[in-house]
Design a protein around this nucleic acid. Structure first.
Length: 332
DNA sequence: TCATTGAACCGCCACA
DNA sequence: ACTGTGGCGGTTCAAT
């Protein structure tokens, strides 16, 4: 599964290979995002965290006003641990059969596959999204759902992580997705460093809804004009406290019913799931940067019951707190 | 692991 | 008529 190479200090080092697919009409922004993020991420020892391959079905592909000369053909997808599929200018155009085949084969090998923006159409065409949750650019979400009724399209989120298959919303959300993957692979500290390089918050508080233009084409006036942003920021400062739905509603000066509704529209999830995610992310940072015992970390992020903390940590990150610390603190 | 129990969530409807 | 809100009640979920 992993390619091993010998670092100069004599220790074996895992290199995670990221293959970025560039097809004709590829959107330059979508292509550049993973190239810049994965290409620049450094581990704490200064070594690059990823090996990057830009792969294309032909040696040169059109990318709008310019052309891209890709160093890898589709064979570059073989041996990759992650395949990124950027959007193309015309997502409704049929995807070349050999591209579909290559993506399908990668997924069948267990390779993680992620799309940016309307790249989701290619994943759907390859059948990778059937029965799964997915997202895409908000303006294309309805069409994706219409063409692929087996795909559960959620236009309200920045990205969807289904484990082996991930999709992200328009353009800039690709950055969120890439940073999310870095966090999954190398921990919050490395991801935070990558985010700083990109001059980008590691995590945006809202979902995609806040970027959907209103009927006049102006900035989104979702809800009755009022934003949840102050509440989300308040929560981020009070994670150590026990927070009930009623507490949040009181802070936002809304009924619980309306709060739930706004939350779904704004972040794509429910208030408490969102709060739990924030708690676990805070715990990840603490596990990486301190030697505080796991039990105490749970208390520090507002989940004082140790068993509850371990279980929630696991459902959010997929690993145990101690396992997470062992992975991401050992090399610090 | 399982049952209990209270909270969270959401559909529905009335109201402004 | 249309949109957002808030209360009610049933169901689900999760902590202990």
């Amino acid at each position: 599964m992993y390619q091993w190479d010998l670092a100069t200090d004599g220790y074996c080092r895992r290199v995670h290979v990221v293959a970025v697919l560039a097809c004709d009409g590829v959107i330059g922004f979508d292509l550049a995002t993973p190239v810049e993020v994965f290409g620049r991420v450094q581990l704490s020892d200064g070594q690059p965290a990823y090996e990057l391959r830009v792969c294309a079905p032909r040696r040169v592909v059109e990318a709008g006003p310019y052309a891209v000369r890709a160093p890898w053909g589709l064979s570059g997808l073989r041996g990759a641990h992650t395949v990124i599929v950027p959007g193309v200018a015309d997502p409704l155009a049929p995807v070349a059969p050999q591209v579909l085949q290559a993506v399908r084969a990668a997924a069948a090998r267990g390779t993680r596959v992620a799309s940016i923006c309307v790249g989701a159409f290619a994943l759907a065409a390859a059948g990778l999204l059937d029965g799964r949750r997915a997202t895409t650019h908000w303006a294309a979400a309805a069409e994706l759902a219409r063409r692929y009724p087996d795909v559960e399209v959620d236009p309200n989120v920045l990205y969807v992580d289904e484990g082996a298959v991930l999709t992200s919303a328009g353009a800039a959300a690709g950055l969120d997705l890439c940073l999310h993957l870095v966090r999954r692979d190398h921990g919050a500290a490395v991801a935070a460093q990558a985010a700083r390089v990109s001059v980008m918050p590691l995590e945006r508080l809202g979902g995609q809804a806040q970027f959907i233009a209103g009927p006049a084409g102006t900035a989104a006036p979702t809800g009755a004009g009022s934003s949840l942003q102050p509440l989300l920021e308040w929560v981020a400062c009070h994670l150590d406290e026990e927070l009930t739905l009623a507490d949040l509603a009181a802070v936002a000066n809304l009924s619980t019913r309306t709060l739930i509704r706004r939350f779904r529209a704004h972040t794509g999830t429910t208030p408490l799931i969102w709060v739990t995610r924030q708690r676990i992310h805070a715990a990840q940072e603490l596990l990486e940067t301190t030697d505080t015992p796991v039990e105490q970390i749970g208390a520090l992020v507002g989940i004082p019951a140790a068993t509850t903390f371990r279980q929630r940590f696991r459902t959010v990150t997929g690993v145990t707190p101690s396992g997470y610390r062992a992975t991401f603190r050992a090399r610090a």
